[in-house]
């Protein structure tokens, strides 16, 4: 899931100030904490209030999309409203905002959120945690399933650095665990310090360079549907 944070209402208002009719689109996809129809409505009310305070009238409608990052789903859900509104405010992550801008070339879609990281939900500790940084070259087999690219503040491949104290990281004021000490401890538990001792050569950052592209393999797509889209 993608962890997002709602922007300050003033910042969102600044973006939509030039418009008087806006569509607010929630997302029911993986965006967390949830940003669905209710959140879209609340944002609409707040923006309406803010506009009133500034002596303006704002017309808005709230909808939600199953997954804004899927062109077909986002396209079919939003298209019925597109002509009625001057701009869209998206409550998805950056993927959704970008997708709506690409599908609806004649309408600007603005982000209501800051996208933070891809995360796993850790219910035990009531936390969202970034376990993976989608780096294109999985190291988890050497690091007891703890990713140093995502979880070490410096992304070191041969840690720990000199900044760890009693297993805590220098970044963030020794509040968060040092990933490399976690790796060390877990490998030790399995008697696999051979993996810890291994030297990992410089990483190929081409694998992580944006923009990322991966063409869908033919067999995985529905050929007939594809033709229809082309028409």
């Amino acid at each position: 899931m993608i962890i997002t944070k709602l922007k300050d209402i003033d910042e969102i208002y600044e973006m939509i100030k030039p418009y008087s009719k806006i569509l607010i689109a929630g997302c029911d996809g993986c965006c967390q904490p949830p940003r669905s129809i209710n959140e879209a409505k609340i944002l609409g009310q707040m923006l309406e209030l803010k506009s009133k305070m500034n002596g303006k009238n704002l017309t808005w409608k709230a909808i939600t999309v199953l997954r804004q990052c899927d062109d077909r789903i986002a396209g079919t859900t939003v298209r019925p409203y597109i002509d009625e509104y001057e701009a869209i405010v998206s409550l998805a992550c950056g993927l959704g905002v970008s997708m709506l801008n690409r599908i609806f070339e004649d309408t600007l879609t603005f982000p209501a959120q800051d996208s933070m990281f891809g995360a796993s939900e850790n219910h035990g500790d009531n936390l969202y945690e970034q376990y993976c940084d989608t780096c294109g070259e999985c190291l988890l087999g050497e690091t007891a399933g703890i990713c140093p690219v995502a979880s070490c503040a410096k992304g070191l491949h041969n840690g720990p650095c000199g900044g760890q104290v009693d297993g805590f990281c220098e970044v963030g004021g020794y509040k968060y665990p040092c990933a490399w000490i976690q790796i060390y401890e877990r490998l030790k538990k399995f008697n696999r310090l051979d993996l810890f001792n291994k030297f990992r050569p410089p990483k190929d950052y081409r694998l992580m360079t944006s923009p990322g592209h991966l063409e869908l393999i033919q067999e995985y797509t529905n050929a007939i549907e594809e033709e229809e889209v082309e028409k």
């Binding site: 503040a153 410096k154 900044g163 220098e170 410089p202």
Partner: peptide, 28 residues
Amino acid sequence: LTGDHSALGDNPGAKPVFDLDSTQFVYL
């Protein structure tokens, strides 16, 4: 050396590099 993280210094918003770590630097 690896170096203390840039977030600890006086230009805390700087983009930290860490393309190589200190061991990979020794390798270079």
